[in-house]
Simulated scan of single mutants.
Amino acid sequence: MSNSKSIGQILRRIRREKLWTLQKTCEEADNIIDAARLSRIESTNSMPSLVAGYKIAKALGVKVEDLFNEAEGVISKPSGYEEKIPVLSWVRAGAMCSSPTSHGFSDCDEWISPPRPNMAPNCYALKVRGDSMQAPHGTSFSDGCYIIVDPAMAPENRSYVIAMTRDTEESTFKQLIMDAGQTLLKPLNPHYPIIQANEDMIICGVVTDMVSRIA
């Protein structure tokens, strides 16, 4: 499913987050357009002129290129962190799963270097909690390691995934098992139970890499 949006939808979201009226936004943009015109831009797929778009974006505190990136489903990163990967909280990862382009990376406090070149543009990292994915042998994810999540990758049988329950936005890290018509979320640690996935669960992304830090 595409996460693309219109420029108008994005401008409306940012304006509402700032609690600005249409008139206030136009005034802050030197009245480059009037409130009626801005309302039409927000509610349709019409585009502002280049000058108007620049002034409105500047008034709202965003860059024009960030608007186009979000419209294409690419989440912008702050200057100086373009090559880094943001470390998200598990709560925030669940929120991003519900609304992928409504949560940027600009206010992330922790960033890590990518483990390899050509990482997915919207990938993010999570810090593993607990030992449910720590296997007695083979592939294992220990408590405190970082996993890299690609939210755009399609999961396959035996993929490592981040799954979320829709109503609680509670996310979990497990191995996806699709077998005999069943969809299961399997911990690698045999001391933890296998979870039967149901219609309330969605896959937020596929884990592609692991990064461990040496103390």
Rank of each mutant, 00 (worst) to 15 (best):
N118S: 08
T101L: 08
I75D: 01
S102W: 13
V87K: 11
R92D: 05
S79A: 14
M119T: 13
S98R: 13
V62L: 04
K84S: 14
W111S: 12
V62W: 01
A71M: 04
V91L: 12
P121A: 10
S79E: 13
F105P: 01
K58F: 10
S99N: 15
A93Q: 11
R92M: 13
E72H: 09
A125G: 10
I85R: 05
E70H: 00
Y81M: 13
H103D: 02
G104Y: 10
G73K: 07
M119D: 01
A71I: 02
S113Q: 10
C108F: 06
K58R: 11
S76D: 06
E82I: 12
N69A: 13
E110C: 06
L67W: 00
A125T: 07
C123I: 01
E82T: 11
M119A: 05
W90K: 12
F68W: 12
T101R: 09
L126N: 02
E70T: 13
A59N: 04
L60P: 00
R92Q: 13
S89T: 15
W90H: 10
Y124N: 05
P78C: 12
S106G: 04
I75R: 08
S99Y: 14
S102N: 14
S89Y: 06
A93T: 13
K77D: 03
S89C: 09
R116N: 05
V64T: 15
K77C: 08
I75C: 10
I75Q: 03
V62A: 04
L88I: 11
G80K: 09
